[in-house]
Amino acid sequence: MSANDDITEVEEVKEVDVKQMLELQVSEVEMLTSMFPNPGELTMDEQTSVINIRNFLAGKIKYEYLHSRIGFTVKIASEYSDLGKIVVELVCNLPHDYPAVAPVVFTRSSNMNRENHRRLNEDLYSYIQCLDRGEICMFLVVEWIQENIKNYLTKDVSAERITSNKDKREDTVFTRVWIYSHHIFSKFKRRDVIEWAHELKLTGFSLPGKPGIICVEGYSCDTEEYWQRLRNLNWKRITVKEKEECDIGCDDINIYRKFSNFEEKTFEVRGGKGREYHMDLGKLYEFLEKHGCGQVFSVYFGVEGKVADGQVAD
């Protein structure tokens, strides 16, 4: 089933003063730390990320050696007389050029069913897109969640948790999604692509370079969440090229997988300079054929693939 209507296009951001952006990020983390001082309220992905950025700002390391990005999780707790204590985890990743670009955020919560959780993340994404770029906004994001979370909950929280588990258990749709990006170069994006797939128990592969290709397969709810997270990153262009779906009932999902795990693939580089590298599409086609997916090559590139001489038809 084609999914050409499911497209996100994000224009590349103009060059910004990264040093100024990182100074703002450090000050924002300090502010959030003071807002959430209790153990477990704010957890950094990498404890050394702020230290490394401070070293860069102090001129101790060059930008090309700055391999850290600020990422953290905030546990936002709200108390309601009719619902009790509700906890939402806000997962945040800050690109180096944030706040000139939007932060990458999504939520986790055991207090709502899958549909309400999807709406929460979509509405949060829309809210962030409306904020002014160039100004830190995580406090506003936290405030928005605190003010709006009740709209995504039911009065019977215990029933809601049961429903959430039921949704997960009764998802009988196997989905394979083929994603096309103009390019995938960023080490941070490459890390997110892999780690999110592992977290959501998806199999498939990613191909960095130009173009960038990602395939994920698993239960529909997990592939949908993966796509929602992925499209929130800053891309020049990213598209779902194809979506395959089938109801597997009570069958073992592993029967339907074409890939045994999720991994990043790299093939022989041809052409390009510096990081503008292109993968060998002939070897990509050979890899797809090996996994019974050769037909998707023409979906991506509009031509039939060939492996006889290692080249691809023009």
Rank of each mutant, 00 (worst) to 15 (best):
F297K: 01
N116D: 15
N165V: 12
L90T: 01
V104H: 09
E46K: 09
L200M: 06
C137W: 02
T73C: 13
R176C: 14
F106V: 02
E115K: 13
G40C: 09
A159N: 02
V87M: 12
E147W: 10
V177C: 08
V26P: 01
I76G: 00
L57I: 06
T107P: 09
K236D: 09
I213R: 04
F259D: 07
D5M: 11
R237V: 12
L66N: 01
Y256K: 05
E268C: 15
E79G: 01
S181A: 15
D97S: 05
N254W: 06
L83A: 14
T239E: 03
S81E: 11
S260H: 14
K60I: 05
G134I: 01
P99E: 13
W235T: 05
Y125Q: 09
P37N: 08
K243C: 10
Q228M: 15
T239D: 07
F301Q: 08
K14R: 12
V193N: 00
R270M: 12
G40L: 08
V18K: 09
V26T: 02
D17P: 02
E225R: 11
V312L: 14
D97I: 06
D222A: 11
K306T: 02
S186A: 11
E89R: 12
V50F: 02
Y127L: 11
W196P: 03
V74M: 08
C92P: 05
V157F: 04
K306Y: 04
G249I: 08
K166G: 06
K306L: 11
N148E: 00
L57Q: 01
T172V: 07
W144Y: 09
N113F: 15
H291V: 07
M44D: 10
H96M: 12
D17A: 15
K189E: 04
L90Y: 06
E135G: 09
H67R: 13
S220Y: 00
V91Y: 00
K210Q: 04
E244K: 14
E11I: 04
S158L: 15
E276L: 14
G218E: 01
L66R: 10
A77F: 14
K168Y: 13
H198D: 07
E276P: 00
W196G: 05
M21I: 08
R191N: 08
A58Q: 07
G40I: 12
F205G: 01
D251T: 07
E286C: 12
L288C: 09
T154G: 08
L22F: 10
G212T: 01
S81T: 09
G59C: 07
F262S: 00
P99R: 10
N121V: 03
